[in-house]
Nucleic acid binder design. Sequence first.
DNA 1: CGCATAGAGGACCGTACTGGTCCTGTATGA
DNA 2: TCATACAGGACCAGTACGGTCCTCTATGCG
Lengths: 149, 149
Amino acid sequence: MLRLSKLADYAVVVLTRLEESGGAASAPGLSVATGIAEPTVAKVLKTLAQANLVIGTRGAQGGYRLVRPLCAVPISEVIVAVDGPIALTACVDGAVGACDAEATCPVRGRWDPVNDAIRSALSAITLADLKRPARQPKTPSPVAALAAE
Amino acid sequence: MLRLSKLADYAVVVLTRLEESGGAASAPGLSVATGIAEPTVAKVLKTLAQANLVIGTRGAQGGYRLVRPLCAVPISEVIVAVDGPIALTACVDGAVGACDAEATCPVRGRWDPVNDAIRSALSAITLADLKRPARQPKTPSPVAALAAE
DNA sequence: CGCATAGAGGACCGTACTGGTCCTGTATGA
DNA sequence: TCATACAGGACCAGTACGGTCCTCTATGCG
């Protein structure tokens, strides 16, 4: 189904909520705000912190705050942070040994353009583009431009 | 990891091999040609037949043949045939009830542009684009155009 | 100074999905 | 008439993911 992991979905939700909370909030607070279980929210935030998308401060009155505004965060970055590198198949970047039929594989290493296309498509969309209303965006988003082809 | 199913990978391999065999071959024949186990090849071909990407003829001397040349088959079609609709998350096309936090979800239904972007990116690449050499394509592929943005 | 809060970083387990095989039925050519 | 090959399932095992929990560290407040 070409599915994205739920964690990545949660990450987007949490980050969006984080900005709505003024750019800073705690994991328990975000849990009640989003309806996502607290341990899960914490897990997502910890992952995002490792990717430097948020910064966590410990102690009482601690919490997480956004490093960049959502409009400066492409979803590709979130996906990479949570799900790892974007690669549709194992046969990427000339990886050797990942596929047992390397010798006979007729599409050897040719998924790369596909991966690149998806990467660039995801890089063109920022988290701000996923936010609620934005009914009539003044400037047509790159998404629309891509879809129009 | 945003992974594609192996079956879809196999499908591309099998279809490519099918064209190299003159557009027609049997499942056992494709199995030995690709190195993929015969039951798996059969499964993939059955799926592709349901999607009208190949046509199977029964009986001795039977087999499968391509309906369209590879250059007329976007990979998106193969992926949809094997893996189902391309949708990164459950919250697609305004599906209701799929997400238990619909009420509070701040990105409700906003993954759609992402899905569209990926769909269009995958639609712009045909199976012919994945074939072996094609080192210096005369006409820059749409993939390159997308990546250049 | 001590305690409550909150993040960091793991380990851990159940489930659901995928990959892969196999079985039965049907069609067709030699 | 039989061997071949597709059609359409059911079926099983391995794995990866989602989700929870535990321990440790840091920090603000009473």
